[in-house]
């Protein structure tokens, strides 16, 4: 393994740990994560209403006539966002490219997560026996895979190639 890969991995894992420690810090959780999660619930609930679902939102809970989901940490897209942002910041790239990656990547990840929450609610309401596996295995894998693919797309599309080594 070369120096660049090692530096990337060390930075990536360090930023990842710092990001999750920050999310776990109570004041950050109370003043940032919880309101953000409630917003995710409101937007997801609005989308479900557009699809004709009679749902009501209470904080981080989306409640329907026969099923309710409580959106918690791990389901609000922030974990994928931190993995993505850590990879963007750890990758050797100009700050302008990083900024583009962070803005576009955040929007894309939240859009994917919105699809996930809506799909999970519908799974719980209409195929409840599929809900557990769909919640953990299927959608977590899909959302993280999308985050990785977004990062690869960013690293290959928005980051200029490094200059060749002098001969």
């Amino acid at each position: 393994m070369r120096k660049r890969e090692v530096v990337f991995l060390v930075l990536f894992l360090g930023l990842l740990g710092a990001g999750f420690a920050l999310l776990s810090y109570n004041p950050v959780n109370d003043h940032l994560v919880e309101p953000f999660t409630a917003m995710v619930a409101r937007v997801s609930g609005g989308m479900l209403r557009l699809l004709g679902q009679p749902v009501a939102m209470e904080g981080t809970v989306i409640r329907g006539p026969s099923f309710a989901v409580n959106i918690r940490n791990g389901c609000n897209g922030l974990e994928t966002l931190i993995i993505f942002a850590s990879a963007v910041l750890a990758f050797p790239a100009p700050w302008r490219s990083r900024l583009i990656g962070l803005v576009l990547g955040s929007l894309a990840i939240q859009a994917i997560n919105l699809v996930r929450v809506v799909a999970l609610y519908l799974t719980g309401a209409y195929a409840p026996s599929w809900f557990d596996n769909s919640h953990t295995v299927v959608w977590q894998t899909i959302v993280i895979l999308c985050g990785v693919l977004l990062w690869v797309f960013w690293a290959t599309r928005f980051v200029p190639r490094p200059a060749p080594a002098e001969r």
Binding site: M1, R2, R4, E5, F8, L9, F12, L13, L16, G17, G19, F20, N73, G74, E79, T80, I82, I83, S86, A87, F91, P92, Q140, I144, V148, W151, V152, A155, T156, R161, P162, A163, P164, A165, E166, R167
Partner: peptide, 29 residues
């Protein structure tokens, strides 16, 4: 820490380290 961030990030980190040259190679001199 292991259950949330690292469980999801480890496959990506292992992949990026294994195939770094495929997406981050420098320009041909």
């Amino acid at each position: 820490t292991l259950n949330l961030p690292f469980k999801f990030a480890l496959p990506f980190a292992l992949w990026a380290a294994s195939f770094w040259q495929s997406f981050a190679q420098p320009e041909e001199a």
